[in-house]
Structure formats: C-alpha cells, structure tokens
Design a protein around this nucleic acid. Structure first.
Lengths: 249, 249
DNA sequence: TTGAGTAGTTGACTTAACTCAATTATTCGC
DNA sequence: GCGAATAATTGAGTTAAGTCAACTACTCAA
C-alpha cells in the first residue's frame, strides 16, 4: 500500500519549527521527569539536558526525520502522536510503531558511523517534541556513569517489546493477528474488559498488521457482529477479552 | 503448527550438564573476547567473569531455559546452534530467532521482579554455551561504569535488529517475505551473489516467516525452477540477488 | 460552511496460501 | 548400517485474504 502523504513527504524537506516557550509542568515536564530514561537524573542534570534541547512543533503529517540520515538527536513526545515507518525501494510504506506523549524514541543504527536513523518519523497530528542532542546525553553518561543503568534497562526493554511485536507477526491468520494486537492494547493484558483507542488510523493499523484495509474493516465488522467489540470511531470497547482470546485459536 | 519435540520438552526438566574443561582458544575464547559486549573489558576482568560462569553442554533439542522463568543468567554460544521460541496458550510454537556460535543472548524482561526470560531457548543440535551470571556482570558494570557503554550499544543494536525483523513481517506475501529473509542472510545485503545456509530447519524458517512448511517448500521450488536459487539441503546459492529483489515487488 | 481529498466500508470476483493426504528424504540413536 | 522418527516434498481441493470498484463518511483548510 502506498500512502500518498508519506510518498509526498519523502520529497519535502522537513522544516522544523522551534517553540521558544520553555517546558513547564503542563507541557509534560512531569512526564519527562518520570520517564525511565530520566527519573534517576538529579534535577540539575536533567535541567541542563533540557537546556541543550530544542522544543519543536510539528504539523499534521510533518516529517521529523528520515531513514538512513545521520542521527544527532533523539526525541521525547510532549503532545500529539507520531508514527515510525520504513520505505522500501518500491515506495511501499510500512508503519512499524506509533509514539504517544510521554514516550522517548529514535531507532538508531548505532554502529554506523555516523549513527543513522533506522526509519522515518512523522507526526500523525499536530504535535510537539523535545529534540535532545545525543552528544549532550552521552556527555551526561560519561560524567555520571551510574545513569547508564537506566538507559541500559530502557534499551533492553525495547528489544523485548520488539521481540513481542515480532511474535504477533508470526501468527498466520489476519484475524488472529488483529485480535492479539487489540488484546495487547488493553491495560491488563486482557484480564478485564476495557476500552482501547487505536494508536493509528485504521489503514495504518492494517499496514502494521500486514493486511489490507479492506480485510481490517471486514474482520472488525465481523467481531462487532458477534458482539465481541463495540466500535466507536477509533475507540473499541472489548467487553470480554477472554472470549476474544479463546476464538483466536 | 505444533512442533512435537518442543511440546515434549515443555514437560521435561532441563538437566544441564556442566563441562569442567576451561574455555580455551579453540573453544571460542577468541570469539568471546571479540564480542561487542566483552571486547572493551580488560583481560583480568573478563577472566574473572569467565571464572564465575559455567560451561554447559546441551544435547539435540535440549531446553536451556523457559519463558517466564526467573532469569539469573545470560549466555554465550561456544558451539552448536540454538533457537528462541515462544509458546502460546494453545501450545503453538513460534520460532523467533536462531543463535550461532559467537553470539550472546537472553531476551529478558528486565522490569519484572525478578527479571524473567521472554522466550524459550533450545539447542537445535548438540551445543555448548557459557552461562554467565547476570549478577556477576552487573557487579562488573558497577565497578567499571565505562563498560556499560558497550552493553548499551549492544542492546540498542539488538532493538534495531528486531525492528528490522518486524519490517520483514509486515510484507504481505509469503513469497516476498521469504525473498527478503534470504537477502538478509547474504553478507553484503544482496549486493553480490553468494551462498547462504539456512540458520534453522526449513519447517522452522517457515514458522519464523508465518507460513506453512508446504508453502515454504513450494516457493523455494518455484524460485529454483526460475533459476533464482540453487538449493543443496540447507545451503542456498543465490546467483543474482538483485533479480530476486526485483521480482519481490 | 463548503468542498476537495482522504479514510473507511461493502460487494463481487480472483488468487495465494492453507489443509489434508500420500510419498519420499533425512537424521539420529542404537 | 538399520530402522524409527522427523522433515521435506508434492498433489488436490478449500478457504482466507487480496484486488478492484463503487460508495459513504470524515477531516481539514480555505
């Protein structure tokens, strides 16, 4: 599936707009402080890191960075939502992840010299991110090696998350992949009923799950017809996750 | 697909056999020294770590560790080959990775308390591994925080590798997933022709690529009939990777 | 508020991949 | 080296999911 807007953004230089207002509590400073990567940092060190960072505003569908370009920064999402995707030689767009406020991201091929981004990152709606220089963070780690522990744990966890994503994708039927994807969106891993919001537009969830939008739509319609989910735009109410899990086998 | 031997090993306590012979140059000590996680270590520190580790021999299909069990060790492969897989509630076995001599592994859910393995690990043939206590490695990092840099890079790279694996799995056609998998096995990323050896038996490569063994066999037969690959047991000769890439779009 | 463009749905038809079954190779322990 | 067990291949029939097309429902920007 070729997504028009991303094919277009491929040829658009990202013009990044800085926001000069400093980060305040309402802007997610609290979320930043409590992020796994930063919560072990002394206030003074975190402040210094923030001072070396820039706050950016991204418009709807605006490109933040490109696959294979040198990666001098990583990012913290203040507001909005982004998606990570890769393009292959035929221009097919594969959505691989979505990023919510409070997340920190940038898949970087760290052994390349210079390190390069492993994917494109694009805002799904108007968003704000904090652009943190890798160098500044590395200097901080050099000065305070005890901080590296948190970074190590963060990356180890990320590797396991991707490993889990990979497991879902080895499920052969489109229907079962979708069910497992929905269950994973539920807070307690499907122990109790709940409402989930799709982190991506439906056509991109379909891309993420290696199926056509039509197939996604039909599977969801079928689950709805069987009383397994109630659908309201991008919000899905799952009344009985266990029943959903049961039919996926 | 339920793989008989793994369903069986599920109920078999892994009886790990220690090898008392110390690691020597022929046993992959050189490979261990040059591994990304260890090459920055001073000889003395690495020796101490090895002394705290145990060398294990694994028989064909022997289970090394189980998903969700406490993870007190990680592993370095001296010889043989292992696979990582997960089992779901219906007993379906999903092969997610294979591990070769010289690799270091253990996907660990590090935020769990205690940390737990994120998958099963099993020897594909008789193998030897070095079982390294996580505690010993962590103590080493505490004493020499500069070593954490290497670990951080290793995990960051692992996350990117899994991200790339995920990308392949978002390819919708079984044929194209197989082609991309083969291209990735080639040394230069498909720039030049070469022979690749499947790191897993064909039925497990099929599982890894979310297809049936029959489908795998038919696709390979078709590629062979079109002169795109020459097949000799688990060795495949790919004479023109670019042509293979071209037909996968 | 309107209209253009994108996203989502549904139907009809086609095809890739699955399933089941039978047969042939391989592997590995004895 | 033999024989049982597992892995791989091939055929035939079925089905899930893709494709193409038409239509509807949003969204966003002028």
């Amino acid at each position: 599936m070729v997504i028009p807007h991303s094919a277009e953004s491929r040829y658009t230089k990202p013009v990044l707009v800085a926001v000069n207002k400093p980060l305040d509590e309402e802007d997610g400073l609290e979320k930043l402080r409590s992020h796994a990567l930063f919560r072990s940092l002394k206030a003074h060190d975190l402040d210094h890191l923030i001072q070396q960072s820039r706050r950016l505003r991204l418009g709807h569908h605006q490109l933040l960075y490109r696959q294979d370009r040198p990666a001098h920064h990583f990012f913290f999402v203040i507001s909005g939502r982004l998606r990570l995707y890769r393009l292959d030689s035929s221009g097919i767009d594969r959505t691989l992840d979505s990023i919510a406020p409070g997340d920190c991201f940038a898949e970087v091929m760290i052994y390349a010299d210079p390190p390069r981004y492993a994917c494109y990152a694009e805002a799904l709606k108007s968003s704000e991110v904090l652009m943190i220089p890798v160098k500044a963070y590395q200097e901080l780690l050099n000065q305070h090696p005890e901080y590296a522990q948190a970074a190590l744990r963060h990356y180890a966890m990320r590797a396991v998350t991707r490993f889990h994503d990979l497991e879902i994708m080895t499920v052969q039927s489109a229907r079962d992949r979708l069910i497992r994807y929905l269950i994973d969106l539920l807070p307690n891993g499907g122990q109790e009923s709940g409402e989930v919001e799709l982190p991506l537009p439906k056509c991109l969830v379909a891309s993420r799950l290696a199926m056509q939008p039509e197939t996604f739509s039909r599977i969801l319609a079928d689950l709805k017809a069987n009383g397994l989910v109630r659908v309201n735009r991008s919000k899905l109410f799952i009344s009985d996750p266990q029943r959903l899990i049961a039919i996926s086998q």
